[in-house]
Write a protein that binds this DNA or RNA. Structure first.
Lengths: 230, 230
DNA sequence: CGGTATCCCCCCTGATACTG
DNA sequence: CAGTATCAGGGGGGATACCG
């Protein structure tokens, strides 16, 4: 009779919490709100989530009317937010802004991950301020193991590609520094200029690209929020 | 090294989700946002949560800087929201509004609970439209077992008391009907007038009080939200 | 690429009792 | 009243392998 997972409360907060507050769920929603639609695309945003669990969550969200799964262009299933799901945007974003304001940055910076960071940067890179030609930006994190040290963002014709293996193009700009510094920049906790001055970051190559980096390197959507804690 | 419960992501959404999205947590926050401060007061709002777990969650929220526990007037511990906790209000309320819009009401109405309903009504009853004298409203749910059938709201000098045992006062108004009907009214899914007309609800006693019931019987904070699903 | 299947463990959770 | 102690059970979810 009594559903095990249910709070047993008619209150809309409780009903909503049953849908939203299971492990990984809001992170999956965050990925979908950011525009990911394919299974493996979603996985890149939640790499530590097992595919079985991601599949289960997607089905749950579909059953709840939040996600619609339908074959896309080439018959491949695409997951999209329903209108109900789209209306979760202010809630998920609100959680992010709250986290940015109230979670100690030291705590966040314990969770460094170059793959997630580069993936985020790829998504938010601003193409317009860049030269119209193809540009290749190489990121290097010297302190990391070889297989996670090198990343390339290739901007070409308005599209941005992220590579973890050398695409072979001539590199226009090298961005070399600690993963912690670049993550802090991404989160709006510091700036490129400050980290360069502090020798945590080095820009090598095209001077124009280097000078305009704060124009084209997008920051986290939450970077502007004023912090209330250290 | 790697914290087990952590998502391992620096993203503020993930950090916030670690704090907010464990079982029962948002319901505890809802209670605190509604004004409850004492342990057993909180328990009344989450009756199916074990005291051990409530205690654990309160400690977690305290560690996260969301809740402040401090001895109150008579040395009894009182739990209050910190500024960070208070800033969760739009998020928790947002979840409620979203639930009201997008969760099928049939689903909510599977979770009927007279104790929660009466506790909510006690909290939101509007004293001003009532006569200045002491008023006793008796609620009866004939279909329920004897021990959950009878409830009394006693309004006296601006204070509202909820009793599940007869306080002994003369009753000014009897509200008799199905728990489902009264819950639906509380949630804004229907109105007193409609349920009376449909014979799901009966008002007996003081005609003035009966006539003004929609003035003094407060509704759920989410009742006004326009529904998008059945 | 896009998922299932399987295994298994740990911890969450619920229940009950108890204590200051 | 305000919790803590203890215990048992179940399932959530992590890891890995596998399949179409």
């Amino acid at each position: 009779m009594e559903d095990k997972g249910s709070y047993g409360q008619f209150c809309p907060v409780a009903m909503a919490a049953e849908v939203l507050c299971s492990r990984w769920t809001v992170l999956v929603l965050r990925e979908m709100l950011a525009g990911s639609t394919r299974f493996n695309e979603l996985r890149r945003g939640v790499p530590r989530m097992s595919p079985a669990l991601l599949s289960k969550r997607l089905k749950e969200l579909e059953a709840a009317g939040v996600v619609v799964a339908a074959p896309g262009e080439r018959g491949v299933v695409e997951y999209r937010l329903s209108p109900a799901g789209e209306e979760l945007r202010p809630i998920v974003m609100g959680m992010g802004f709250w986290g940015q304001r109230w979670i100690e940055s030291q705590l966040s910076l314990k969770n460094l991950d170059p793959s997630l960071l580069m993936w985020d940067m790829r998504r938010n890179l601003r193409v317009e301020p860049m030269p119209p030609r193809r540009c290749t930006i190489a990121f290097q994190y010297p302190e990391l193991a070889e297989n996670r040290r090198h990343w390339w963002l290739v901007v070409n014709g308005g599209a941005v590609d992220l590579c973890s293996v050398d695409p072979g193009f001539e590199v226009d700009l090298y961005v070399v520094g600690s993963l912690r510094a670049l993550t802090a920049i991404w989160m709006g906790l510091t700036t490129v200029g400050r980290e360069v001055a502090a020798k945590q970051l080095e820009l090598l190559g095209d001077a124009m690209l280097a000078r305009s980096i704060e124009q084209w390197l997008g920051l986290s959507p939450f970077a502007g929020e004023t912090r209330k804690v250290a």
